[in-house]
Amino acid sequence: MITISNAKKLFKTKNGSLTAVDDVSLTIKEGEIFGVIGYSGAGKSTLIRMLNGLELPTSGTVDVNGKVISGISSGELRKARQKISMIFQHFNLLWSRTVRENISFPLEIAGVRKNTREKKVEELIKLVGLDGRGDAYPSQLSGGQKQRVGIARALANDPEVLLCDEATSALDPQTTDSILELLVDINKRLGLTIVLITHEMHVIRKICHRVAVMEEGRVVELGNVLDIFKQPKEPITKRFVQQVTEPEETKETIEHLLNDYEDGLVVKLAFVGESAEQPLITTLIRSFNINVNILQGKISHTQNGAYGTLFLHLRGDVPEVKQAVEYLEKASVGVEVITND
């Protein structure tokens, strides 16, 4: 569906040139929700803008649905953009137009006739759950409603790809969730390929199938969301994963415990998919003569399955504890013994 090959983007600045995107190659499959995560300045914004030609790569090629976005004429590019929609962090609605007129705008651009336009707009208003708000102006809407208008507008020309530029970063957590659910719904119902960029791992966890982690213009890690959660390799990926799996206080609690109790071990278990549902703790207590203290636990659901972390404090005879850890390792869970350093 989307192929980016060796894409590079240089920006000329006063202090020389800046490499925003540095030799990125990616393939995104049809019908996939693909996430790109990175801190601000990582180049993800430039990368996503290459997909609809708002930024052209300095070198390399970008191919979307068989069209070489990086090399077509401006007329063809405008035509192609009608099938590659985009939604934005700050919604970017026309404030002088009502909800209905905003959604109608891309249809006007595509030269759709008035009757057809009106019918389509009504359908879209229903699809995004804005019934009855058609005549409101953007200034009369909440952030979540504005983004719904943005999504409806993006879907107007039946696009093949939807690009989401930090689409939920300006929304509160609850609204974020409802917008994310809407995106998943659209992805399933319309089979739309979605590419999103974000700095929130929560967004990736909730709706993405695959994720690319960007740092300084490069993709440093790429894979299935669940795999990335299970085994993050790069330090930056680990930090992003921790955003979701380990609340701030966990670290403090564990440090505290390590200081207070000289004996025993603090272990962090990572469960993935089915192993998350095994009665592991019961078996552990029954089979080994140890005390198990649950410090903190959390299960997160991703699009590919569940992922959980559990912090345990194991106390008892040293050999017994060691055996218990070995058992845990065999039980197909990720085990990490946390030490005080």
Partner: peptide, 23 residues
């Protein structure tokens, strides 16, 4: 951002001038 949004929809220069900038 609004101009960028119009461009992302495939708007021509004339459309951007009349329907975005002046409007």
């Amino acid at each position: 951002g609004v101009i960028e949004a119009a461009r992302s929809m495939g708007a021509s220069m004339t459309t951007i001038i009349f329907k975005v900038l002046l409007a």
